[in-house]
Write a protein that binds this DNA or RNA. Structure first.
Length: 364
DNA sequence: AATTCGGGGGT
DNA sequence: ACCCCAGAATT
């Protein structure tokens, strides 16, 4: 015997850790549940994975509960009204996900007999399912040995192997390392374990290396600062854009809304009328960009940070007579504003002009 | 390979 | 203030 002891394979160490420390999540079939014979529902796995794209578990939970209660199966979602789906998604962000979610449900329900493809390639051919999500569904829902690489796993792998290549160039190398590490047995649990590890132990700041099941194998621990991994390309600064928003309220307390075009930023969502969002703004915007002539007066500014720019909206308000022209939009009663497909920035603008607009007790 | 897509929570 | 988050689609 040339070694004093044999170390367990990293995959076995991670699975053993996962059996003890896994988190209970609404879409997860935990090891005890699996032992009791519970099988994952591909619909719920898919729905959760799409919602979790660039979105935290905490933010997803309430939306996942809402969607699964309202649309329990992929067939239900396929038959749903597009606008109802957008309204239910409002606030979660990245609205192309909601549009693709609906398209994907229709494809599965109407072209695949209501059954999700059970291979990575088959899944990836569906709208809104890319490299990560296809691998994750294949592994978690269908027990396929696919290499699941998300932001958590990138961090774990980059530290474990001290990868110096910056992201995103390092992705192929990382995926190969994950593939080599993924076990034949329990690949779905392995994927979830790696993500849990990145979310709770191998964190971006102050990782709990002392508690990590892989600390004996980590190439960074003890040699460099784990917080410096993964290496990443420098990011560019966010420009500021300016704009005006117009909140009109009629004598019945209804607010004038309109629908944005289907593509691009906040595509297909509801908005209050406004100017274009540009680097500079001229002085007579209030008179040129308003939806109709009225006694517009400024109420203040709201700031909203998008992924690639910061928006500062000057919010104008007016009180107009009942029956004011509604070209290009509609009048929405304040009591039902909360059910509209309003993205967060639009809710901010309305609240700036009408502070109690979303107060259910006042508007009921 | 770069850019465009939201929003919120942690530090 | 800055970081990141179970990324995908488009250019």
């Amino acid at each position: 015997m040339t070694q004093a002891y044999r170390t367990m394979a990293p995959a076995d160490l991670i699975l053993a850790w996962y059996d003890k420390h896994h988190r209970d999540l609404p879409w997860r079939v935990s090891p005890p549940m699996a032992a009791a014979g519970v099988k994952p529902d591909p619909y719920r796995i898919w729905l959760s994975e799409v919602m979790l794209q660039q979105t935290t578990v905490q933010a997803v939970k309430s939306y996942f509960a809402l969607f699964t209660a309202r649309w329990p199966t992929v067939a239900d979602l396929a038959k749903a009204d597009n606008e109802d789906v957008m309204k239910s998604w409002a606030g979660l962000g990245y609205y192309a996900r909601a549009r693709n979610l609906k398209k994907c449900a229709e494809a599965v329900a109407f072209e695949h007999g209501g059954v999700f493809p059970d291979t990575e390639d088959g899944l990836k051919a569906l709208p809104g399912i890319g490299d990560y999500t296809a691998a994750a569904i294949a592994a978690i829902a269908f027990n396929r040995k696919s290499a699941v690489l998300d932001g958590n796993v990138e961090r774990v792998i980059s530290r474990l192997h001290a990868i110096e290549t910056p992201l995103p160039a390092a992705k192929p190398e990382m995926r190969a390392l994950v593939a080599a590490m993924t076990p034949e047995d329990r690949p779905g649990d392995f994927a979830q374990a790696m993500m849990d590890l990145g979310a709770t132990i191998c964190t971006p700041r102050r990782p709990a290396c002392a508690l990590c099941p892989l600390n004996a194998d980590c190439r960074v621990l003890g040699r460099d600062d784990p917080e410096l991994f993964p290496r990443k390309a420098a990011k560019k600064e966010k420009p500021v854009r300016l704009g005006a928003a117009f909140v009109a309220e009629d004598e019945d307390g209804a607010v004038f809304l309109r629908k944005r075009i289907e593509s691009g930023l906040l595509g297909g969502m509801t908005e209050v009328p406004g100017s274009a969002w540009t680097a500079r703004i001229d002085g007579d915007t209030a008179t040129t960009a308003a939806p109709f002539p009225a006694d517009w007066h400024p109420t203040g500014t709201v700031t909203h940070v998008f992924t690639h720019f910061e928006l500062r909206l000057t919010v104008y308000r007016s009180r107009v007579p009942r029956g004011t022209a509604k070209d290009g939009g509609w009048w929405q009663p304040k009591a039902t504003l909360d059910g509209e497909a309003l993205p967060t920035v639009m809710k901010k603008a309305i609240k700036q002009a009408i502070p109690d607009a979303f107060d259910k007790t006042r508007n009921a």
